[in-house]
């Protein structure tokens, strides 16, 4: 029997918004440590890794490991039926072929349940090597979303260059070129607005704007975003999800031919 109860169903609504444009379907792996999802987009250029820890749920029970193949468009429809303040419970029997979502309104006057069929998806788990990144940049997530949106008007690619002075985002194309430089913030009273850079050695990599703009759909999940970069390895874009977990996006770089 699997049962997970979350007082803030808005977290799940935001998680679905953060992955549904990149992935059509995905397997939610449930175990006693929590819910994990790892899936590449159809072009194998990007990968989503979601982790929701069991201790972040208000109630969590997972008697036996359960892999639920889910069509994300269907799950998005169900999550749209939930109010932001509803309490959400996911329930599935062992080796079930369906999962039930229950939503309770805060005053318990409205109780809804939606049963969704599960899919048989073949699992393709990738080994992601632990990496000691040359540059780790923390910045406001809204700022990063704005930069990706603005620069994607100038070209298909963004060059992210990180030195000890700061981080520069550049794009060029038919209409011209654009550069946005962020310096490390000295002392900010609100850490959510800080820009911090840990640099072992400088790095400059090129990435497709399209995928970065998919990743920034996760912006509502966290006020800050963390970019990790090393030469010639995929970029990691990480958003914390409250106290319950994180969503990590990996993006393969573009290389000069």
């Amino acid at each position: 029997m699997f049962e997970a109860r979350l007082v803030q169903s808005s977290i799940f609504k935001k998680v679905l918004e953060a992955i549904k444009e990149l992935l059509n379907e995905a397997t939610f792996d449930c175990s006693d440590s929590g819910i994990q999802l790892q899936a590449m987009d159809s072009s194998h250029v990007s990968l989503v890794s979601l982790n929701l820890r069991s201790d972040g749920f208000d109630q969590y029970r997972c008697d036996r490991n359960l892999s639920m193949g889910i069509n994300l468009a269907s799950m998005t429809k169900i999550m749209k039926c939930a109010g932001n303040d509803d309490i959400m419970t996911m329930k599935a029997q062992d080796n079930a072929d369906s999962v039930t979502f229950m939503f309770e309104s805060p005053n318990q006057e409205k109780m809804s349940d939606y049963e969704m069929k599960l899919m048989n998806l073949d699992q393709e788990h990738l080994g992601i090597p632990e990496t000691d990144y040359s540059c780790v940049i923390k910045l406001p997530s809204a700022e990063f979303a704005r930069i990706c949106r603005d620069l994607s008007q100038f070209g298909e690619s963004v060059v992210i260059s990180c030195t000890k002075e700061g981080v520069k985002f550049s794009a060029a194309g038919d209409i011209g070129s654009a550069n946005i430089k962020l310096a490390q913030t000295a002392n900010v009273d609100k850490e959510d607005e800080a820009v911090s850079i840990e640099m072992q050695e400088k790095v400059s990599l090129t990435f497709a704007c399209r995928y970065l703009n998919y990743f920034t759909k996760a912006t509502p999940l966290s006020p800050q975003v963390c970019l990790s970069m090393s030469a010639e390895v995929p970029l990691v874009v990480e958003y914390k999800i409250g106290e319950i977990g994180h969503i990590r996006y990996y993006l393969a770089p573009k290389i000069e031919e």
């Binding site: 194998h44 090129t206 390895v233 995929p234």
Partner: peptide
Amino acid sequence: SSKQMKLDSFFNKK
């Protein structure tokens, strides 16, 4: 021009 790499060349299938 620049060529888009695939994640398969960085992450190995388990």
